[in-house]
């Protein structure tokens, strides 16, 4: 069982990912915007963060930069989960890898099943490093 933080503003998608991760036996905590995500991270340390990019208040990249600034959060693996298209992802890919993301997923390309699989792989990679 892993503790996952999901930062996502779309309620339906939240419901979908929540259902899947809970079904797989994982604990999931939801933030519906960037600021909320950073606030929650002050009290709660997840094993992995699923971070949407286009969110109200603070976008995913800003959140990511904040996380990487904080020593206690810096090593938590982050998977970017976005609704941007391939072309936009390509534009941001360098920035994303510079910020040390574990994966960069396009929501419409991956079923929840595959997202769970990517999360598990990232966790395995992270623990492998530890």
């Amino acid at each position: 069982m892993a503790k996952i933080m999901l930062a996502e503003d779309d309620a339906i998608l939240v419901e979908m990912y929540q259902a899947k991760f809970e079904l797989e036996g994982h604990e999931i905590l939801v933030a519906t915007n960037g600021e909320e995500c950073l606030a929650l991270l002050k009290e709660y340390l997840p094993d992995l963060i699923l971070l949407d990019i286009l969110m109200p208040k603070l976008n995913g990249f800003h959140v990511l930069k904040e996380i990487k600034k904080q020593p206690n959060l810096r090593n938590i693996p982050v998977i970017l989960l976005t609704n941007l298209g391939e072309a936009e992802v390509d534009m941001n890919r360098e920035l994303a890898s510079a910020l040390g993301v574990s994966d960069y997923l396009i929501k419409s390309h991956h079923t929840p099943d595959e997202v769970v699989e990517k999360v598990m792989r990232a966790l395995a990679g992270a623990s492998g490093h530890l």
Binding site: A19, L54, N83, K107, T111, P112
Partner: peptide, 16 residues
């Protein structure tokens, strides 16, 4: 973008 979000939701729920 606006189309992708519901399409992703449809895809996700259906796949489950």
């Amino acid at each position: 973008h606006e189309l992708r979000t519901p399409l992703s939701a449809i895809k996700g729920f259906l796949s489950m």
